[in-house]
């Protein structure tokens, strides 16, 4: 056949077929998406520090292990309150002449998704220590440590942030470990990662593949409550540690804690829901409950888990008791 024996015709056809398909599946959808999208009206643009932090995030290839996308499937519910939508990424433009746009959606979760990490883990102290040595706060973590983002000094000057590193991880460093500008910028970027609320009246897209067994499993559990151990691991453990002993100079112990074992339930629920900043020797606690949309059942399960673990031996609380306080907090907000 002439067509197959003529190199001009053959290669031109193969070329045009590919370019044609490329236009349809890549270029046109891409152009269409960038034209018909805008950031949500209430989206907060990155501050100068956060933008600099994003560059550090990019330079160190953090996207290799951390995604920034909440898929519209039920299993991704733990990473955000709603699925990510096109508008969430609309503000990402080309970084500079050398570098392309960085939506940082990622393709692997060797580490957790970071779409909403600013709400889930807003504590500066935790983030800095975690960057300096992840295993100081999460024993099983395999994240790289970034000690080169920190400076060792004899004394801490005004305006500098010291990181209290447990002795085990100081590796013979006797001076003060101080966060560099880059480390603070990186944390500022992480703190800025929060899902923007959809404007009122706009329907929230739902999650697919909902677990049907959830209700049945919940009914089987103790007193119809979710598993407190699992909830503790997901929401509390990174600071207060699996053994409930916290970290000296950063996060207080729950083991033997008067609040955990005491009778002031209102204070206890308030701390979990709205955070705590009453003790100078420890870091500020964020509003874990409100930030992560924990339900009254979740809070009850966590409280009962904490009151009966690590040698704590206090009387379990009931859902009704917690619910009364919980509803009041929800009503008044932060």
């Amino acid at each position: 056949m002439d067509f197959f024996d003529n190199h001009k015709k053959l290669f031109r056809s193969a070329f045009l077929l590919f370019v044609g398909l490329t236009l349809v599946v890549a270029i046109m959808p891409a152009i269409n998406n960038q034209k018909n999208n805008a950031a949500l009206p209430n989206a907060v643009p990155l501050s100068a520090d956060a933008a600099a932090g994003k560059n550090i995030f990019i330079a160190n290839g953090c996207v290799a292990c951390h995604t920034q996308q909440v898929r519209n499937v039920d299993m991704d519910r733990m990473w955000g309150s709603r699925p990510s939508i096109a508008a969430d990424y609309a503000d990402n433009k080309r970084l500079d002449i050398w570098r392309n746009t960085a939506t940082l959606m990622g393709s692997e979760r060797t580490g957790p998704d970071l779409t909403n990490i600013g709400s889930r883990q807003p504590s500066v102290a935790w983030n800095l220590l975690h960057l300096y040595q992840p295993r100081a706060v999460v024993e099983q973590s395999i994240m790289p440590a970034y000690p080169w983002l920190f400076i060792v000094k004899d004394s801490v000057s005004k305006g500098e942030t010291e990181v209290i590193v447990p002795d085990k991880f100081r590796k013979g460093i006797t001076g003060k470990i101080v966060a560099s500008k880059e480390a603070l910028q990186l944390v500022a970027y992480l703190q800025s990662l929060k899902q923007t609320k959809l404007p009122d009246g706009k329907e929230t897209p739902g999650f697919l593949y909902k677990k049907e067994v959830k209700a049945a499993a919940a009914a089987n559990a103790k007193g119809g409550l979710p598993d407190g151990n699992v909830l503790y691991a997901a929401n509390c453990q990174s600071c207060h540690q699996p053994n409930g002993e916290g970290l000296k100079g950063a996060f207080p112990p729950l083991k033997g804690s008067p609040i955990v074992n005491g009778d002031d339930l209102e204070l206890y629920v308030n701390i979990i829901m709205k955070g705590y900043d009453a003790r100078a020797e420890y870091a500020v606690m964020n509003a874990v409950g409100l930030d992560n949309n924990l339900s009254a059942e979740d809070i009850t399960a966590i409280i009962n888990h904490e009151r009966t673990s690590w040698g704590n031996n206090a009387k379990p609380v009931t859902l009704e008791e917690v619910k009364k306080i919980y509803d009041f907090i929800k009503l008044t907000g932060k």
Partner: peptide, 15 residues
């Protein structure tokens, strides 16, 4: 660079 804003980057990336 002209089709890489926002999700454009992701669509091109998949391709």
């Amino acid at each position: 660079p002209t089709w890489q804003n926002g999700l454009g980057e992701t669509i091109v990336q998949g391709y």
